[in-house]
């Protein structure tokens, strides 16, 4: 397992290099002088010329790339034009919110998606299946921003149960109870993805239930619930685990919308604001972080896959 993990990490290097080239070129592919772009519309020609020299924009592109890459490897992602701060610390300030939001969302997806998917599959064709299946269809097709606004209207405005926006840090006054700020956003974010998992669990369980070894399990005289969980669901989980990688990709783009709707000080909102402010170094930095995260998640999915299916050889 360890050797396999190390090997997989090594294979990530070329992908990461390719991604880093794309991210680096991002600023240079926008037509115009990169220094002018970085400084925005209001900059004077003198300021542009000064920054150009400072950043080495007059040197050959590949030299610039290697200098940039060297800085990135040392944790220097550049300086935010808007905040006048290192990009890494700007991203870091949004990290707490985004990580907590993502974790709560993942918990909801698992707590809601798996049991309802199992229920829907084991009660196939009954009214329970009809309700859960159409519920999942609905949840998967509601746009994130609309669901978010709807939840705010019901639970914040009308009932007043949960706050509608913002998120004070867990280290602020309120401590762990501040998580209630993330309840509605995480549910909003979880809904379409949990629905996806429900449909996936249901479909893979129905597939597995037609396999011969399930008949063997029933022939042992096992209770139907045990057959459903230990035999059908356990095998269906292999396909479901593979889908968690895709869910993560969907989660990132939906998180941008959700953080904006709920005014959460996370990385998603930072991206939106940075695009509006043309704060390119920050955008570059966030993209780089997301690429790395995405690869780590996919590696984790692969490892989980190998754990779940003994037929996958770790070579």
């Amino acid at each position: 397992m360890l050797a396999y993990t190390a090997k997989r990490l090594l294979t990530l290097i070329p992908t990461l290099l390719a991604a880093s080239i794309l991210v680096f070129l991002f600023v240079h592919l926008i037509p115009g002088d990169p220094a002018a772009i970085l400084l925005g519309d209001t900059a004077t020609p003198e300021e542009v010329a000064q920054l150009s020299a400072e950043m080495g924009f007059d040197r050959p592109l590949y030299v610039q790339y290697f200098i940039w890459l060297g800085n990135v490897l040392q944790g220097d992602l550049g300086t935010s034009i808007f905040f006048r701060q290192p990009v890494l610390s700007v991203i870091g300030s949004g990290a707490e919110t985004s990580i907590l939001l993502a974790s709560m969302t993942m918990i909801w997806i698992i707590l809601i998606g798996l049991p309802i998917g199992i229920l829907s599959a084991t009660k196939q064709g009954t009214w329970i299946d009809q309700i859960t299946s159409s519920g999942a269809m609905l949840a998967a097709s509601i746009p994130t921003f609309w669901l978010g606004l709807y939840l705010i209207m019901i639970f914040s405005v009308t009932l007043g149960w949960f706050p509608s926006s913002g998120f004070p840090s867990l280290s602020d006054h309120g401590g762990i109870t501040n998580l209630r700020y993330l309840l509605l956003p995480s549910l909003t974010l979880a809904a379409p993805n949990a629905a996806l998992i429900v449909r996936l669990v249901r479909a893979s369980m129905l597939d597995v239930s037609r396999e011969d070894h399930v008949r063997t399990a029933r022939a042992k005289g096992l209770h139907p619930t045990r057959v459903a969980i230990k035999h059908i669901f356990r095998n269906a989980l292999i396909a479901v685990a593979a889908a968690f990688g895709f869910t993560f990709a969907a989660l990132i783009s939906e998180a941008v919308v959700t953080e904006t709707v709920f005014s959460l000080p996370g990385i998603g909102r930072l991206v939106v604001q940075s695009i509006l402010r043309r704060d390119y170094p920050v955008i570059q930095g966030v993209i780089l972080v997301i690429v790395v995260l995405y690869m780590v998640v996919n590696l984790a999915v692969d490892l989980a896959y190998a754990r779940l299916d003994p037929r996958v050889s770790l070579k």
């Binding site: 396999e211 008949r215 399990a217 029933r218 022939a219 209770h223 095998n235 779940l308 299916d309 003994p310």
Partner: peptide
């Protein structure tokens, strides 16, 4: 019925390659 299955009455099938749970 289940208390008999796999106990006093048991069955083997035509498909040995797929009749055991792979995991």
């Amino acid at each position: 019925r289940r208390s008999i299955m796999g106990n006093r009455m048991a069955m083997i099938f035509q498909e040995p390659m797929t009749s055991l749970n792979p995991v």
